[in-house]
Design a protein around this nucleic acid. Structure first.
Lengths: 253, 253
DNA sequence: ATCAAAACAAACATTTTCGAACATTAATTT
DNA sequence: AAATTAATGTTCGAAAATGTTTGTTTTGAT
C-alpha cells in the first residue's frame, strides 16, 4: 500500500514546491524509475498534475500553465477534487446544468470526453472552457453579467432558464447550514440556480468544506431541495455526522 | 524537467514585466544560450510571445484567451486597426451591440475607458473581455454556442435580441460585395446580427479588406442596411472608388 | 559606412528520460 | 493452496532535452 503514500508525497510536494522530479520519488521511496513514472502517469491521467521530462508540475486545468499571476487560490485542490467527483456523476448523452462559481468551473475539464453531452450554464468561464470541446453542446443563458463572478443573472436569464429541463443540475452556494439551508451573498444569481434545480431530476450541490455550516445573507433554497452534497475531505467529522443524521446525502471527494 | 519550469518562468516574467531577456533565463537556470533561445522559439511558435533580439516580449493578451490551437491570424494588425477605429464612434452612456467575429473582438480593449456604456453581445470572447471592465454593463445573448466561432446563435438568441434596441450596432460578416451585399458561411448566426442591426440607429460593418468583394454562401443583408463600412488600408483603390460611387460610407482605419 | 561585440541558428554530439514488453513479486480472492 | 489480480522491477531501443561547435546575422558605437 505504499502506492498511496507515494501519491500523497507527490501531491504534497507539488502543492508546496510546484514541481517534483522522478529522482525525488526514487530516492524517497527506493523504487525504480518505472514505478515513479507510473505514479506520475496515473496522477496525470486523473488530472492532478502535468507530466514533464524528468518529473511533473502542478496541474491547473483551467488557467493553462501560463496563467496571469500565479496566485494560489485557497482551496484550489479541494475544488478540483470536488469537480472531479461531480463529473463522475455525468453520463454520456445527458443534459446537465452547471451553475456559476469557482468550484463548478473545476468540473468542466473532466467532462471533455463525454459523448453527446448537452450543458446549460450561466457561467461565462464554464461556457468558454466547454466551448473548447467540440463534442459538447453548450447553451448559455442570456442576461446581464455580474463582473466579479462572470456569471449571468436577471429576469432574462431566469425566463430562459424556465424553458429548459435537465437530468442533473450542479449548483453552487456561498453557504449552507442545517438551520438555514442554502444562502448567497446576492439575491439575483441564485434565482437562476433555483429554476434550473427545480426542473432537474437530480440536484448536486458542490461546495468546499469552508462553506459548510456557514451562513450568507440571502436564503434561497432548502437543504431538502438538493439530492447530493459533494464536498471535500476537510469537513469536520462532527458536522459530517450531524449531516448524515439529518439524512443529507453527503459525498466526500 | 526544467523545460516546463523555464517556460513558466518566462511567461510569468512576461506577464509581470512585459519582456524577458535570454540572459535572464541563462542566469536563472544555468543553461546554454541555445537552450534559452529554443525555449523562446517554441513559445513564439505557439503564439504566446513575440521574439526580439536578446529576448522576447509578451504577445497580444487576446490571443491567449482562446488560443490553444491558435493559428496566428493573418490580418491581425488590420483587425486591431479596424477595432480601434470603430471604438472611436462609441460615446459615453450609449448602448451598443457587438457582433461575434475576430475583428469585433478587437474593439473591446479600446472601450475600457468609456463611462456608462452598455454592451450587448453574442460573442463569448467579447463578453469575457468586457467583463474585465467593471464600468461597462455587459449583456450576453443566450442560446447555443458555435464552437469554432465562440458565438451564440439560434432561436433563443434571436428572440432575446428582439427585446433590445441599441444606438449603434457593430457587426461582422464573412463577405461583402456590391452585387450580393453581406454574406455568411452559415445561415444561423447572421440572424442575430440582422435583428440587432435593424433596431439600431446606426449600423457599422467591420471587415478587413480581404473580405471585400468576396462572397460567401448565405446572403443575409443588403449593403444599404449598413451606415458605415470600416475596413483597413489594404483595400484596392479601384474597389474603393467603386464603393464610393455607390454611396457606401466607407472608412479606412 | 565600417567594425567589433553580441545574438543567433544549423548541424551534430551527448546525456537524460521514456515507455513498451516481459519478468517477478506481493496482495486478494476463491 | 491455487488462481487471479495488482504492483513493482528489468531491459533496452527510441525520443527528448540539452550542450557544443561553427559560421552567419544583427546591433550599436564609432
Amino acid at each position: 500500500m505504499n502506492k498511496k503514500v507515494r501519491e500523497k508525497f507527490i501531491m504534497d510536494t507539488l502543492y508546496k514546491k510546484g514541481k517534483i522530479s522522478v529522482n525525488q520519488i526514487i530516492e524517497k521511496f527506493n523504487v525504480t524509475s518505472m514505478t515513479a513514472r507510473r505514479d506520475i502517469a496515473k496522477l496525470a491521467e486523473e488530472g492532478y498534475l502535468i507530466r514533464t521530462h524528468g518529473g511533473a508540475i502542478l496541474a491547473d486545468p483551467l488557467e493553462n500553465m501560463f496563467s496571469f499571476a500565479t496566485r494560489i487560490e485557497a482551496n484550489k485542490k479541494h475544488k478540483i477534487d470536488i469537480g472531479r467527483k461531480a463529473a463522475k456523476f455525468v453520463r454520456d448523452n445527458e443534459s446537465i446544468y452547471i451553475d456559476s462559481g469557482t468550484t463548478l468551473i473545476r468540473m468542466c475539464p473532466f467532462l471533455k470526453d463525454r459523448k453527446g453531452l448537452t450543458v446549460i450554464t450561466n457561467s461565462l468561464p464554464a461556457a468558454s472552457e466547454l466551448s473548447n470541446y467540440s463534442n459538447i453542446r453548450v447553451t448559455i443563458l442570456g442576461g446581464d453579467i455580474i463582473h466579479e463572478r462572470r456569471s449571468i443573472y436577471g429576469h432574462t436569464a431566469v425566463e430562459q432558464a424556465k424553458k429548459y429541463s435537465v437530468k442533473k443540475a450542479f449548483i453552487g452556494t456561498d453557504g449552507v447550514s442545517l438551520k438555514n439551508g442554502l444562502t448567497a451573498y446576492g439575491n439575483n444569481e441564485s434565482q437562476v440556480s433555483n429554476v434550473m434545480a427545480s426542473s432537474a431530476n437530480e440536484v448536486f450541490l458542490l461546495c468546499d468544506s469552508s462553506k459548510i455550516e456557514h451562513d450568507s445573507t440571502f436564503k434561497f433554497a432548502e437543504l431538502s431541495s438538493i439530492d447530493y452534497l459533494i464536498t471535500d475531505s476537510g469537513i469536520d467529522k462532527k458536522i459530517l455526522q450531524k449531516y448524515k443524521k439529518n439524512k443529507v446525502n453527503i459525498i466526500i471527494a
